[in-house]
Simulated scan of single mutants.
Amino acid sequence: MKLGRLGVWYSTDKLNGAQLADLIRTVETCGYSAFWYPEARGYESMSLASYLLSKSERLMVGSSIANIYARDAFTAQRAMVSMNSLYGGRFMLGLGVSHIPMVEGLRGHRYDKPVATMRAYLDGIHKDLPADTEAPVLVAALGPKMLALSAEKSMGAVPYNVTPKHTAEAAKILGPNKVLAVEQKVTVETDPARARELGRKELARYLVLPNYRNNWLRLGFTEQDLADGGSDRFIDAMVLWGDADAVRKGLRAHFEAGATHVCLQPVHADGDFAARDRILEALADT
């Protein structure tokens, strides 16, 4: 399984079937190597992956992430094997422990210790897997312990809401021959006020989640940076903006820090899919 340099990350719950198919065609036509999607309150992860794969010819499709509390490890393993058998080895199983509100509040499960729980789940994924069967599993890892587990038990990591500083630290922990697929929000917008307005709207739902806040504090942001929708310094780090050349420079910083793959998340006004597609077209040659 060969993952190319650039991919696209997009929140799929906001799209219906026809809109999803249109997006997949755009991503594939632009030449991106992979499409990544989350699992939150809308589409179920494995059925969505099958639909996305059916609408593409060459595109790799990866869950980023499938919630490990949504299905047991055997079911996730069988889904991974089934889709790669049916769709020519184009599915990547990105796994994550999600967040307490999504696990306890929404699903009614108990949110256990993240690293130990993920370790047990990865063991279950690999249990009784035939020796000649590839296991393209990646882990949503932010902290050093989860990154070390990713290196030990999976193909690599899919960090989200991170900076090149985190990418450099993750690359050191993962070591060589591992996938480091980093998500980065982008908008081709040269007006600082407008770009930051879009960024604050996009980041609002993440600023209340402890997993992300703790990681941002580890990276050197302060509580003041995370207050009141985020400081300009914080927003500018999390959402690359400017003309296409300025955004490309920011994306290259991840590669220089050790990323093997960067997935762009286009940030745009709600429903402005034309703007989304313009962003993807402008940055496809990064």
Rank of each mutant, 00 (worst) to 15 (best):
L180I: 14
L180P: 01
E189F: 02
V186W: 07
E189Q: 09
Q184K: 15
A181E: 05
V186P: 03
T187L: 12
K172W: 02
L198I: 01
R194E: 15
N177C: 03
V186K: 11
R200F: 01
A171R: 10
V179D: 10
K201Q: 15
L198P: 03
R194S: 14
G175P: 00
I173Q: 07
E202R: 03
L180K: 08
N177H: 10
H166D: 12
P192Q: 06
H166R: 11
P164H: 12
A171L: 03
R205P: 11
L174N: 03
V188Y: 00
E183V: 04
A195R: 05
L180G: 10
A181G: 12
E169G: 14
T190N: 11
A195G: 06
K172E: 15
L174W: 10
D191F: 00
E202G: 02
A204Y: 00
T187G: 12
T187H: 14
L180N: 04
P164C: 12
G175V: 14
R205L: 12
V186N: 11
E202Q: 08
V188K: 02
A195K: 06
E189W: 06
V179F: 06
T163G: 11
V188S: 03
A193N: 04
G199Y: 05
V182D: 04
E197G: 14
L203E: 00
T167R: 02
D191V: 02
A193P: 03
L180H: 11
L180F: 02
T167C: 07
L203Y: 15
I173T: 15
H166P: 01
K165C: 06
T190L: 00
K201N: 12
L203V: 04
R200N: 07
H166M: 15
L174A: 08
I173C: 07
V179T: 10
A171T: 05
Q184P: 02
H166V: 07
K201M: 06
K185T: 05
H166C: 09
L198H: 05
L203D: 05
V186G: 05
E197C: 02
G199Q: 00
L174Q: 05
A204D: 13
K201P: 05
H166S: 12
H166E: 12
R205Y: 12
A204H: 13
L203P: 02
A195V: 07
D191K: 00
K201L: 08
T187Y: 09
P192T: 04
T190P: 08
T190V: 11
L203Q: 11
R194I: 13
L203C: 03
A168R: 15
A195I: 09
E189K: 03
K178T: 09
